[in-house]
Design a protein around this nucleic acid. Sequence first.
DNA 1: CCGGCTTTACTCGGTGCCGAAGAAAGTCGC
DNA 2: GCGACTTTCTTCGGCACCGAGTAAAGCCGG
Lengths: 391, 391
Amino acid sequence: MGDEMTRRQVRGDLTRTEILALLGAAGPLGRAEIAHRLGLGAATVTEHTRRLLAEGFLRELPPRTSGTGRPRVPLQLVPDAAHVLGVRIAVDHLAGVVVGLDGQIVDEFRLPLRIADAPVPLLVETLLREIDARRHTTPVRGIGVAVPGMTDPESGVVRLSGIMGWRELPLGRELARRLPVPVLVDNDLRASTTAELLFGMGRERDDFLVLGIGDGLGLGVVLGRSVQCGADGSSGEFGHLPVDPAGPRCTCGNRGCLQALAGQSALVEQARRAGVSGLGEGLPGLVGAAERGEPAVLAILAEAGALLGRCVAGVVNVLAVKAVKVIGEGHVLWPFLGPSFEAAAAAGVIEPLRDPEITVAPWRDIEHARGAACLLLARGSSELKRFSSVD
Amino acid sequence: MGDEMTRRQVRGDLTRTEILALLGAAGPLGRAEIAHRLGLGAATVTEHTRRLLAEGFLRELPPRTSGTGRPRVPLQLVPDAAHVLGVRIAVDHLAGVVVGLDGQIVDEFRLPLRIADAPVPLLVETLLREIDARRHTTPVRGIGVAVPGMTDPESGVVRLSGIMGWRELPLGRELARRLPVPVLVDNDLRASTTAELLFGMGRERDDFLVLGIGDGLGLGVVLGRSVQCGADGSSGEFGHLPVDPAGPRCTCGNRGCLQALAGQSALVEQARRAGVSGLGEGLPGLVGAAERGEPAVLAILAEAGALLGRCVAGVVNVLAVKAVKVIGEGHVLWPFLGPSFEAAAAAGVIEPLRDPEITVAPWRDIEHARGAACLLLARGSSELKRFSSVD
DNA sequence: CCGGCTTTACTCGGTGCCGAAGAAAGTCGC
DNA sequence: GCGACTTTCTTCGGCACCGAGTAAAGCCGG
């Protein structure tokens, strides 16, 4: 009961981060403008910016008069005042990025690497090498790790990752013990949801959903500007929404999970069974078939889109959230899923919430790595400050 | 953006209320025990209880030694230090209660009254009479109103109430203008969810769901000890979860809403169509038929239970909430809905969340009135203190 | 060019919360 | 019966946030 404590400890930092994120996204702003946009009091902004200036994360620009009144003093981000490394774990590779305070990617890498069997030593070795390589260019002050699977961000424990074959793996603790900078671990979709909160939809909205179409289906939930984690960080399991008790068996053991009906491999399987020829391997093959106008594939995708839309509409009805962002590998299917998704989502939502805003952005798996980096940024500047760069 | 302001203003009061609620539910406790149970710091409890003692809401009992250590000073609630009136609006009647600080009902009433056409004057007249009648016994310091329909608790506007035929009705403002005590208006299910947070499940859990089976189906969502309201207070529309696009038309205009498949009137209709004889009117008739062991009815109810269970499981998967409470008129159907509900809910939930705790409590519609009263209690003691009793 | 206006920024007092340190008030061992 | 130990409660300093009041710094109109 009462996580108020934790929340409060972190809140001040979060506010400073939001200031940094805002300046990163919207360019130099006066203090009054910051206060207005973030819904903070002017006094609060004065206080925080004082600290951020002292820490070197911000600089003041010459005053700029805007018509009448005292001129504002624009504050500008110093993006290179700190860099953070984010990695996304996948089955056969690691995707990594280095971002500045503004969340912009300044460097990226991709390493073919199967870490499932010995995650800790392989990650430690790799991360140390990457940190070291950047010692003189973009020194790293923190590391975020995005895991494909159910992960508790508080404890850093990977509860369950089917793809990686992990269960109750205390990744956060083990990495923190062996790396010279702070480490945060979270589920990949929630990491990207955090990025979205800081630098994406969160710019304009306090509440939104992030639908992740990847190996599985996930749903990130942001309510009141906070990313919901649920008990043990096990929220967001959208793929295992029970849809049809008579449906096909899912990897989780249940029958008729959403994922078993509209997940990527389910779609490929359906296409194959419908006798579609020339299906290459996996997702690209499916996209190819759809682009060729293969009617069976188009029908399958349209139906899957409608199903997804209905399920999202259900969540929208319950939580009264008006915006949804779609991310993940599967976004390449969106041209074919999208129309029926949007129709179903709009139709399935009660009238006052009608026409939820649905956004799809181009996506690379590097985005999850950026999300991982944003976990650090969301924890705030003081954490970054304490740990000076490695040398 | 940033409702932090509002949240903070209200938070202190909420904490005091939680202290009062805890003492109401668990009897006299020492300060250390309060701090522990509410997850607060000891300093905070000292501060708050000082105020509550000064305001007369609490009294100290003689110190009681418990083995070793300094004896604790138990603090006892003074339940009659303030009373709050709560009413639930229904189509053909008003249900009302007066509760003390501990949320216990000290008085109740039920008035046959159709207020749909002239809600403000009828409510004002009725409430003034009820306040006046209690002037010398249990003076009323605030009023909560529970509305069957989508209602924004912030503004007090009833967005949409199909049953009452209201739309964008600024009930809160109009009542506040005409009544001598503070008035809060909210959706009925959310009101009961608030009661549950203060005096029910919230005792042990920070996150839970409240499934309301009434005229419609609603879902109250509590995350991190706060009742989720969504944009414009329009959250919780569980009944309009789109389940079957080919299903029967719902009152909301869509097809195959959960409510159109498993709502009370849908169930009655299904039973009628199945040729069940001796169906009295509405709910009691259905219960009667089920109790007679009518196989068609039992099958219908079992299927509805399973459907409800699956839908709740979906929400549980997404939000990672482990406890569900079932309330509402429809609880009388629970003996027949329950088994399949529980099975479906357990089956539809991913393994780490397996076996969500499902609780059903006996229920009278007076509970919604109590929920309405709890809206006031949740807003805190200082609001009650400011407005002395009417005289 | 000097006071009024506007907008920006800062200061100050107040609230809610915390952790750490210290005071208080008992039991217990010797 | 006196110090040690334990538990409870309070005090204190500190952080995050706010609103209101004040200072600052430019424009503008007479």
